[in-house]
Design a protein around this nucleic acid. Structure first.
Lengths: 246, 246
DNA sequence: AAAAGTCATGTTGTCAGACAATTGACATTT
DNA sequence: AAATGTCAATTGTCTGACAACATGACTTTT
């Protein structure tokens, strides 16, 4: 029997659902407005105040809310920062759209392969596990601007899945399907010189400067669903992050 | 009455002290090791378990620890490169200290200047406002690894301030003095090729790849206190960020 | 009338203790 | 040897309470 309220069906871990509900509430609350009081929110979300406060702490750490003792909890201005900031994982397609960049999918390449030692370690799967590698070039203004490679076990994505309405973004596909449930991504930020292969794909010179992200995408159980490395041409993307003073 | 244990004298908010203590403990705990149990930690830190768990949640959000029900809380791997979650703003010096890396101050250069149009716009001050520019080179293992430039109005930092125990880090100085109150920083992430000037300072070749941050540091009133641009040699730093699935 | 002080109220911050859920190790049975 | 049961340890959550703080209304003083 399918649930009526589809948005949050990852009922496996109540804390995640709570976080998701709170995220929605914060997103829907105008900047500067006060959230309901903690006892009220706890009652409404069906959790204790202690649990609610732990969840709230995660949003405070992201600079999304500000709590003032004796006054209340307020949503901070999330106009530019959150939209295009790194705090939220979004597919490159929607990210690019947010900065007003018309993007098209360049070459798309899908390959089945068997996990070598490094890949097995990164994805926490046994060596030899069948994997799917999806690599694609993103174009803007008739020019390649990003090169993205996703690597994930066939358990999560098969060649057959890609037959039907696959736009190129693995993340968007997984999110649309709803399983496995995605929670967060640990992204590392690097600056690299373009290798020959990357240079050819992006139509630049070998050794040119690129911004590179490597990301592990985690499911609810802490399982690695997807490992991706992304190369970005400087100038076409602006990534920023709000860092709080520790 | 001076406290005996000097390390954490920011007693203004007990929660911050707790976070600082926990950060140290996590930094000093070998990767993969288990932390003490929550009741034990709460007792040792002198707080309740609920408060402790809220603080732990912030570190979990940064990917520094992993909690497993029925088993314990573990420190996740942090290698010997300077690794930092971007969620929290810390000086390179304190970052390095946390992982036990010896860093020294290379060349330090301080210059008074008068805000030109761009600088005035960035710092939200009138054109001509007297500014202080602090640039420095960070060395690790007898090699320059980072080049950092801070630009801020003399209202917040004067030449005189730097006479007395200035370690090179503007952030650390402002934090130690406690005014103006720092809240957060909006950091942009770029990849650039080294200019001649930067290449000379970092003893690399012009055109070599560098990771670059530009950051505006905000006070409580939303005022821009400091504008900085930082160049990092790849390989010596590993910055990461936890992105939640929107 | 204006200023200062006082108090009530509402909100977040913290606490103590308890029980539930999960895991891992060990013992027991098949 | 394998499956199952038992138990202790640990994190996850809940309940209720009080402390700290901010705000506004009210009272008192000037």
């Amino acid at each position: 029997m399918p649930s009526l309220n589809a948005p949050h069906t990852s009922e496996r871990h109540p804390f995640q659902r709570l976080q998701s509900q709170l995220a929605d509430l914060i997103a829907l609350t105008p900047a500067g407005d006060r959230l309901p009081t903690e006892p009220e929110l706890a009652r409404r979300m069906g959790v204790s105040r202690a649990t609610l406060r732990e969840a709230m702490r995660t949003f405070e750490g992201q600079g999304l809310i500000r709590r003032r003792q004796g006054v209340g909890t307020f949503v901070v201005s999330h106009n530019h920062v959150i939209e295009s900031g790194l705090e939220v994982l979004q597919s490159i397609e929607s990210l690019a759209a947010k900065i007003g960049l018309e993007v098209t999918l360049g070459t798309l390449q899908v390959m089945r392969l068997s996990a070598n030692q490094d890949q097995a370690a990164i994805l926490s799967v046994p060596e030899g596990t069948p994997l799917l590698e999806v690599s694609r070039v993103i174009q803007a203004e008739d020019r390649p601007v990003a090169y993205l490679i996703d690597l994930l076990p066939e358990e999560f994505l098969t060649l057959d899945d890609l037959q039907d309405g696959f736009t190129g973004s693995v993340i968007d596909f997984l999110l649309r399907r709803g399983s496995p449930p995605l929670v967060n991504s640990l992204t590392e930020i690097h600056a690299v010189a373009a290798s020959s292969e990357i240079a050819r794909a992006l139509e630049i010179q070998r050794g040119d400067v690129l911004l590179m992200f490597t990301a592990r995408l985690f499911s609810g159980e802490g399982q690695v669903v997807d490992y991706s490395y992304s190369y970005f041409l400087p100038g076409y993307f602006r990534f920023h992050v709000v860092r709080r003073v520790g």
